[in-house]
């Protein structure tokens, strides 16, 4: 018999036998090492929006689905999915939807550029994370820097820099928390929106009154007036008031109004979607003309500083 024939036959036999052997081993292993996966996980994953935004606190939708199936967490955490999604998840798991209020991002600073004092010219890279490394870009070491890292991080286009202050568009915000993760000064938090409009403390400066006055025209001076009016709702964390959102009840507007009125610096703000009354109140006011882009100045020469 010639060598070639034998070699060919051997090659075919080796490959064929190897295929059979491996197929057998893998088939045996897939049954032997079978891990009983919860069939609900796939259903849950299909019901989730798949944005993988991480807003629920888990790494991606699949991990949240896994945690749901194990009963480690509640169904109302998915901000992009909202109420419909929570209902679907609850149907799959056979549980009731507990109170699910969407979380939305809140910027705890409200000073526009000209209200922040002791600002110096900054010629470095136009990002907050870089500017935050440099002392003296602005007097307030707590407040918004206004270079818009959060606006860049927002996948939903919900953040705009208005007058040097990042401003959240609550029509678009889904509460994924991407902005709060990139903010180098940690002034963006996620607040449970129990109503369309929520009261928030719009300052992050935890210094004493004199120091705050030196660096900001509008910052909270820590006078504790709010905490005296509503001692349960507002607690003082150092020189900065904090709203206890567990006790926050949007129905009790009187308590909220009293806090709002008591603040000498007007650092309590209502943020969120405008209600019908708000829209009606400003209906007859003239809006400023829409600002259109000037294409001569939008060529971005600030990026490259080689």
């Amino acid at each position: 018999m010639p060598t070639t024939t034998v070699a060919l036959a051997l090659a075919a036999a080796v490959l064929g036998l190897l295929a059979i052997a491996m197929g057998f081993v893998l088939g045996w292993a897939s049954r032997k090492f079978h891990v009983a996966a919860d069939p609900r996980v796939e259903l849950l994953q299909a019901a989730l929006p798949g944005a993988n935004c991480g807003g629920c606190g888990y790494v991606g939708c699949s991990e949240y689905a896994g945690a749901l199936a194990e009963g480690d967490t509640t169904v109302g955490l998915c901000a992009p999915g909202g109420g419909d999604c929570a209902q679907k998840l609850a149907d799959i798991l056979g549980v009731e939807v507990t109170e699910s209020c969407p979380y939305r991002a809140v910027v705890h600073c409200s000073a526009h550029r000209d209200q922040r004092l002791q600002r110096a010219d900054y010629d470095g890279e136009r990002t907050c994370v870089s500017a935050n490394l440099v002392a003296g870009v602005q007097g307030c070491t707590y407040g918004c820097l206004g270079f818009g890292d959060c606006a860049q991080a927002c996948k939903y286009g919900a953040i705009e820099i208005v007058g040097g202050l990042s401003t959240i568009n609550y029509e678009k915000c889904v509460g994924c928390g991407a902005c709060s993760r990139v903010c180098p000064r940690n002034i963006i938090t996620l607040v449970p929106f129990k109503a369309e409009r929520m009261m928030v403390v719009a300052c992050s400066n935890a210094d004493a009154a004199a120091d705050v006055r030196a660096v900001c025209e509008v910052g909270c001076i820590g006078c504790k007036a709010c905490a005296r009016v509503a001692p349960e709702l507002v607690t003082m964390g150092g020189a900065l008031p904090q709203i206890n959102y567990d006790l926050y009840n949007p129905e009790e507007s009187e308590a909220l109004e009293s806090v709002l009125e008591k603040c000498p610096r007007k650092r309590y703000l209502f943020v969120g979607r405008p209600t019908a009354e708000d829209l009606a109140a400003v209906a007859d006011e003239e809006l400023p003309e829409a600002v259109t882009a000037d294409f001569k100045t939008t060529v971005d020469d600030t990026e490259w500083r080689g």
Partner: peptide, 20 residues
């Protein structure tokens, strides 16, 4: 062909084993 075959199936096997 045999190397690719062996790598692919051993990765499969190892994955199942490690998962279990």
């Amino acid at each position: 062909i045999i190397y690719i075959f062996v790598i692919a199936s051993s990765v499969q096997f190892v994955e199942m084993y490690v998962r279990r």
